[in-house]
Simulated assay, not measured.
Amino acid sequence: MKKVTKAIIPAAGLGTRFLPETKAMPKEMLPIVDTPTIQYIVEEAKASGITDLVIVIGKGKRAIEDHFSPNYMLEENLKKKHKEKMLEEVEKTNEMNIYFIRQAYPDGLGDAVLTAKSFIGNDPFVVMLGDDLMQDKVPLTKQLIESYQDSGASTLAVMKVPHEETSKYGVIDPLDEVKPGLYDVKTFVEKPNPEDAPSDLAIIGRYLFTPEIFEVLENTKPGKGNEVQLTDAIDTLNKKQRVFAHEFKGKRFDTGNKLSWLETNIEYGINHPEIKGEFREYLKKIGKRLEKEDQ
């Protein structure tokens, strides 16, 4: 069985939920406290044993390329000034092989994954979405890799969500629980209405695929939103070979809209080693002020 060392991060979306900021700045570069969101995704890949990473970008995403390119002038400056902690931060992903592929037009997540076919070749690989930050003792990507090493099958991450929110996600219809937290799946449904949702187990932003997914994607017609939906391709793949769902039980932070992005910043801020004390005190003051205003 081939070792999983490759990953795709789709980052070609237009980021319209964050306009006007994303007119010039990629949404993947929006910071969580002091770190671009996509940096956390790349660090998770590194911690999971990924060595070769391709980021699928579109027009106006040059800032992502610049961020992951070594900045020798900055690094030398930090060395001379003995700012070791800052140097460590900017060098975190220097040793990874990070490549960029341009998606001509944002035509759905399935199309973005297909764009990286030549990079992946005939190897198993991981897809990591930039909107979801995952926290657990073992990185979620590594959990999927370990599951694949046992089964040899494509495996995607799912998490229980409130039933009324199932229309926001791809949802699985589980056949049975093969072992604790691992499901054999009957069908995968893209954004069902709550009354039609087969379960509360929603697909979240981590997938591990065998290379056969590419042939399926090449023959997948546009679905919801007139885009090539990855969930539709997964459902087709599941009819040809088993696809498992691994239930994630850690913490998931959604950065895909303004409110959830602000909530994530607060969650990360109250644990940030540099500011957590002062920030917690500030939040207490805000809480007291809001209580008075609401009375």
Rank of each mutant, 00 (worst) to 15 (best):
M1E: 03
M1D: 07
K2D: 01
A7E: 00
I8F: 12
I9P: 10
A11N: 09
G13F: 07
L14K: 06
L14F: 05
T16Y: 10
R17D: 08
L19V: 12
A24R: 12
M25P: 00
P26T: 02
P26N: 07
P26G: 04
K27Q: 10
E28H: 12
E28T: 06
D34C: 08
T37D: 03
I38T: 08
V42F: 04
E44M: 08
E44D: 12
A45Y: 03
K46F: 07
A47W: 05
A47V: 01
S48I: 02
G49H: 12
V54Y: 11
V56G: 08
V56W: 11
G60L: 09
K61R: 09
R62L: 07
D66L: 08
D66I: 02
D66T: 14
H67P: 04
S69G: 03
P70M: 01
L74Y: 10
K79E: 15
K83Q: 15
E84M: 07
E84Y: 15
K85H: 14
M86W: 03
M86T: 07
E88T: 13
E88R: 14
E89V: 09
K92M: 15
M96E: 06
I98S: 08
Y99F: 08
F100Q: 11
F100L: 05
R102I: 12
Q103N: 06
Y105N: 11
D107C: 11
L109M: 14
G110V: 10
A112T: 06
L114K: 15
K117G: 02
S118R: 11
F119K: 15
I120F: 02
N122I: 01
V126A: 13
V127S: 03
M128D: 00
G130R: 10
D132P: 10
M134A: 09
D136C: 00
D136A: 12
P139I: 06
L140E: 12
T141F: 03
L144M: 11
I145P: 14
I145A: 01
S147R: 12
Y148D: 02
S151N: 05
S151R: 11
A153S: 09
S154C: 05
M159K: 13
H163F: 08
H163T: 01
E164K: 01
E165V: 00
Y169C: 02
D173S: 08
D173M: 05
L175R: 11
L175W: 04
E177M: 06
P180T: 07
L182T: 04
V185Y: 04
T187L: 04
P192I: 02
P194H: 00
P198E: 09
P198Y: 13
D200F: 00
G205A: 05
G205S: 06
V216Q: 07
T220L: 10
K221Y: 09
P222F: 05
G225C: 07
E227H: 14
E227N: 14
E227F: 15
V228F: 01
T231M: 08
I234D: 03
D235I: 10
K239H: 13
Q241M: 04
F248N: 09
K249V: 15
K251W: 01
D254L: 02
D254G: 00
T255Q: 04
G256T: 05
L259Q: 09
E263M: 14
T264M: 11
Y268H: 08
I270N: 10
N271K: 14
H272F: 00
E274I: 00
G277S: 12
G277V: 01
F279W: 09
F279S: 13
L283M: 14
G287I: 04
R289M: 06
L290K: 06
E291P: 00
